[in-house]
Computed example of a mutant assay.
Amino acid sequence: MRLTPEQVAIIKQTTDEIFGDDVSVKLFGSRLDDHVRGGDIDLLVESPSLIENKMDRMLTLTARLQLRLGDQPIDILVVDPRTPLNPVHRHAMQTAITL
């Protein structure tokens, strides 16, 4: 995994601030491969309960992470019980690791 312990802590803390501590945040995509360079940070936020204002929270998380981690590309998927799952969601859920 190509995130430092400090980056992981920032991602977890910031996600908890915005979504609460009942969600899980996971990393998927190219940052899982230690042999690849570059790439964006792909995050999957999963909630067992419905998330109100999901899009606003996702945008807030993206902005805060860019401020705290530096200006780098961050992609975030947010899944709650009413999210219609598409192939990208399914792939992320199958390959992601919990931070």
Rank of each mutant, 00 (worst) to 15 (best):
L77D: 00
T60F: 00
E46K: 04
Q13F: 09
L3V: 12
V8P: 04
D80Y: 00
T62D: 13
I11K: 00
A63P: 03
M1D: 01
N86V: 09
R57L: 14
L50N: 12
T60P: 00
G38L: 08
V78L: 07
L61W: 00
R90A: 07
T60C: 01
D22I: 13
L67E: 15
G38W: 10
H35L: 15
S49V: 14
L99S: 02
M93A: 02
L85K: 08
S30H: 10
P81E: 03
L32P: 01
Q72G: 04
V78I: 11
A9G: 09
D42T: 07
D21W: 01
D33F: 06
M93K: 10
Q13A: 15
L59A: 06
Q66E: 13
L69Y: 07
K26M: 12
L69M: 08
T62L: 14
V88C: 04
P48D: 11
T60K: 09
A63N: 12
R57A: 08
Q66K: 15
I74M: 03
V23T: 11
R31Y: 05
D40S: 11
L27S: 04
T83R: 04
G38S: 04
I51V: 14
T95S: 12
K54V: 01
I51R: 00
M58P: 03
E46R: 03
P84D: 10
I10L: 13
N53H: 12
E46I: 10
V78T: 08
D75M: 03
A96H: 01
R31A: 09
E52S: 11
P73M: 08
P5V: 07
G38R: 03
V25N: 03
G29S: 06
D33N: 15
M55G: 11
T62V: 12
T62H: 13
Q66H: 11
S24E: 14
K12S: 08
P87S: 09
I10E: 04
T4P: 06
T98M: 09
H35F: 15
R31L: 06
L59E: 09
L44P: 01
T98N: 13
A9L: 13
H35V: 12
T98H: 10
D80V: 01
R82P: 01
Q72F: 07
E17C: 09
K26P: 01
D56M: 10
L99T: 06
L67A: 14
D16W: 11
P81K: 05
S30D: 06
T98A: 08
R57T: 06
R2L: 02
S30A: 11
R37V: 10
H91K: 15
I74V: 15
L99C: 07
